[in-house]
Write a protein that binds this DNA or RNA. Structure first.
Lengths: 219, 219
DNA sequence: AACACAATTTTTGTATCCAAATTGCGGTTC
DNA sequence: GAACCGCAATTTGGATACAAAAATTGTGTT
């Protein structure tokens, strides 16, 4: 990755660390987050740990009952459906605005990004494609030229991150995802808002379907 | 008002208090939020005050630079435009889903709520209409039957609250707003998603225009 | 008189300490 | 033997104490 911003505060530092562990999967949904043990692990006191946990609660990755501690947000099928539903709308809006507002230069960089993924697709490099996928979507959030919308999309993306890895194991999912990205890209390059929005919504809907499939298998 | 939930934690308590002061206008955009003086005012220590401020930072009502304290989010025209833009899309989506998903009972209550506002409109009761407006929009957020979307809409509504009061002073704005609500309600009762979404977006766009008008006057 | 540097002061970030609440275990009683 | 009440232990919420960083002010020099 590249998140080398070196946070100015310890709380932010360990927030990123915990978030990373949730994304990576070492902290599974439902895991309890004990303030004291986390403080010990990071060599800090409970205060910055508490702040970090609060941040994660607000981002939706962690839930916390008043006097009962914090746990990584458990997998709730109903909530997941709602998240995917909103995500498809928000990303669709990003794509719509991006089609209208991205500069030729931005569109060029997006196209390069996408083209650079061919090798990842053919090598079936899951981790590599995961990073590309994130970068591609992020570029479109930026392309909306609306910071509020972009932050919303990023927040939703992060909330879904712990579950998103499931669906990338689906057979031939990389090829499908790559092709769908291509459709979105083409619509953006053609400056066709309706088509871009529709293509992006379809892309997200497929992801939701695959996720639902996985959930139904696991239960 | 009516928010009588009696929060279980002091931090949540003063978060609501500070938020209320921002909404009401006694804490103006740009005002510095000093932890110590706030703690003294509420008779608490800095710890819950810090938590409350973190909550507000996350909701977007307050901005905070790393070692430089927190201030009520200043009025930034560019950011405001973006907020209204996203708000119109999100509320439009709420109306769309509401048209599809609200039960006859829910639609009935929404209609009653709206009908009960006639007296407020004719009396030009600003505070009363402000409360009705909030309740009307909130009912539609609920009507989307999507908790994620509803929370997003509520968060955006809160972020715009400090500025919303400006536009209600606009001449004949109550009548216009009430009529637009009527159009949204009719579309929802007719279970017409496209029309509901369009009517709601128009309602929000008008608000944005009036706000922009005020901003241009003030600058 | 103006600019620059340094010290002081103010304020935030972190650590430690205390209180309050929930949970689990054990004993007692029906 | 089972259920209920109560106590203790663990854990979170809040308070206080300490450290570090930034802003301001004052002084000295140019």
């Amino acid at each position: 990755m590249n998140e080398q911003k070196r946070p100015a505060t310890r709380a932010e530092e360990i927030r990123q660390a915990i978030e990373g562990e949730i994304f990576q999967g070492s902290l599974r949904p439902g895991s309890r987050l004990d303030e004291e043990s986390l403080a010990a692990r990071f060599g800090l006191s409970r205060t910055p740990v508490r702040e970090a946990i609060l941040q994660l609660v607000h981002s939706g990755l962690v839930v916390k009952k008043p006097r009962q501690g914090a746990v990584v947000a458990p997998l709730d099928l109903h909530r997941m459906v709602q998240l995917f539903e909103v995500m498809s709308e928000i990303e669709g809006l990003c794509a719509r605005y991006a089609a209208r507002r991205m500069s030729p230069d931005e569109k060029g960089r997006l196209a390069e990004l996408h083209a650079g993924g061919v090798s990842l697709r053919e090598a079936h490099d899951l981790d590599g494609y995961y990073a590309l996928n994130r970068a591609f979507h992020d570029a479109i959030y930026d392309g909306s030229h609306n910071d509020v919308l972009r932050e919303m999309a990023r927040s939703l993306f992060a909330r879904l991150a712990p579950y998103r890895r499931y669906q990338l194991n689906h057979p031939r999912r990389i090829e499908g995802s790559y092709a769908e990205h291509g459709e979105v890209l083409a619509a953006i390059q053609a400056a066709d808002p309706d088509q871009a929005q529709a293509a992006m919504r379809k892309h997200l809907t497929i992801q939701a379907d695959i996720f639902a499939e996985f959930v139904s298998i696991m239960s």
